[in-house]
Design a binder for these strands. Sequence first.
RNA 1: GCUGGCGUGGCGCAGUCCGGUAGCGCAAGCGACUUGUAAUCGCUAGGUCGUCGGUUCGAAUCCGACCGCCAGCUCCA
Length: 647
Amino acid sequence: MAKVTVEGGRSVEVSAGSPVGEALPPDAVCARVDGRLMDLSWAVPDDGEITVRAVTAAEPDGLHVLRHSTAHVLAQAVCDLYPGAKYAIGPPIEDGFYYDFDVAAAFSPEDLEKIEARMREIAAAGQPFRRRELSRDEALRRFEDQPFKREIIEAAEAAEGALGNRFAVYDNDGWGDLCLGPHLPSTSRLGAFKLLSLAGAYWRGDEKRPQLQRIYGTAWATEEDLEAHLHRLEEAERRDHRRLGKQLDLFSFPDELGAGLLVWHPRGGIFRKAVEDFIREIHMRSGYQPVFTPHIAKSVLWETSGHLAKYRDNMYPAMHDENEVDYYAKPMNCPFHVLIYKSQTRSYRDLPMRLFELGTIYRHERAGSLHGLLRVRGGTQDDSHIICRPDQLVDEVLRAFDLTLEIHRTFGFSDFVINLSTKPGEAIGEERMWADATEYLRTALDRSGLEFSVAEGEGAFYGPKVDFHARDAIGRLWQLTTVQCDFALPERFDMEYMGEDNERHRPVMIHRAILGTIERFSGVLIEHYAGDFPLWLAPEQIRVIPVADRHGEHAEALAGRMRERGLRAAVDNSRERMQKKVREAQLMKIPYSVVVGDRDIEAGTIAVRDREGHEVRGVPPEAFIEAAAEESRERRVMGVDLDGLAG
RNA sequence: GCUGGCGUGGCGCAGUCCGGUAGCGCAAGCGACUUGUAAUCGCUAGGUCGUCGGUUCGAAUCCGACCGCCAGCUCCA
């Protein structure tokens, strides 16, 4: 006999060797024993007492198991329907799971329906997942015709002699998969699932290895959870900046320009200018100096900087000019800023020098990684290089953090995930520099009191960095800010300053971009606000709508007064009905619509409507104009209280 | 870059499987209506069907290349 104590519950006596599941409530999907997740069928050892915790699909670990088992059933269904299919790996992922296959013909969306239907049959059949442990040889024999499984077995053994050379196999109804587990007790316990998409994926993520077909799915404990997730996907779709960019007439990517290259339309231009004006203003206020640099430079600059050696894959090919040297479009602004620094002998009194530029860069990103504004080939960074003495570095990094938080707060972001990224495989500079630079950043982070985690090997090729990821309105994280520490470029460019001791010293450099690129940041803002920009960012802030043609002149006068107060106001004088104009203004997500007709002209009032459809009549025009001008000037995220204006 | 899917007036789509030289809605222009909070009615114009090449009596439709877009290629039994 053995005694099983269920955490937060009672103790049960069970006979030795009986499944731990017998002691657990029926909604358990697996058990946590000594911190390890085990199948419900795991046999209780006969001697002692154990404490176990029931894990249900309502908690992350349980959901993970549920998704893992769903992936397993996906592979089973594929093997049923496509004899000879080779199956590779199928882990649970955030919100779902995937499984990679090698099958003769490409899957089509119709195949997904068939596969999903087969999965439902398997679920309905209630097949138990049975765990067995095999020796290496047995396992190899068991997966004789499954090359990916064989490779996993061989690699696992080479790596760690996993499980002491025992390999777990989960079988249900004759079909089995190599898997550490745990799994659900039965396919009948699968939750609500749906196959979502198809994609290619390299075996082991290596582009030199065979490309497999990946099927993505999502799985949840309940139908309601699944519905909620599908709803979130729709919500993300509704916010898609590429769709909104078109709808709001902000920008476009004409084919004629080339992939990843865009033009900003007038409405997008106003929006972008609002972003840039703010960014310039706050940088000037924070002790940065504006600089301007060209878009191309001779190859020698990129040789010195190390870009041709380490960053060439991301650069556009050279421009050849007969009888002249090659030129390259710049993928970064740093070398130019270095040249500005080096234009004269610098004193320790000149430091820190904070050079700021909205610098346009060109990067030949892989064709398949381009994604609207979020990944472009030509973009403009809010780029700064802070050149300082080593003893100033920590303070300068802290100042950069402060500026980062202030800027993001203004744009409506307040929740961040922060990473300290360390030396990558491809890097320049001595080990010593890397260690020092990383230590400075860590010190600054510690002093800032910000929470952070370390991302090994994720640094830039010239130095370690701190990245800020902002959480948006629907909980997604976006990498925006990067603050990078660089001891290498000052060395390469032989940057110096005269110290107090009348000796030459080497400065250090901080690279930092707070928004990242204006393009990418704009994409994030569009998705964050779903196009409903705060007033100060809205291309058209107020649309004045005359009820009938005869009110046009009055509307124009009103809009004129708004413009005098610095507001971006326009009159809709198209020959449409007023209702149509209201609809139009709302579809264009214009923050405020102002309607004027006979009654207003007579009473000297206006009717104000926000883009959510909230409407207030009888508002004194000056009160509204004043409130809106203030909202815009102060770059508020929240709109004015319309009800408070009604007098 | 790779795998799969897609590309038809400014925008959103049908037509492509089973070749016979294009259709709808919105937007645009014109006319009528002059309207109080999410689409008034009518008329008109607009497309060498991404590009180039091939097959065919004939290609939006079939084949090839290229360009562009979309999903993924990071999560490692």
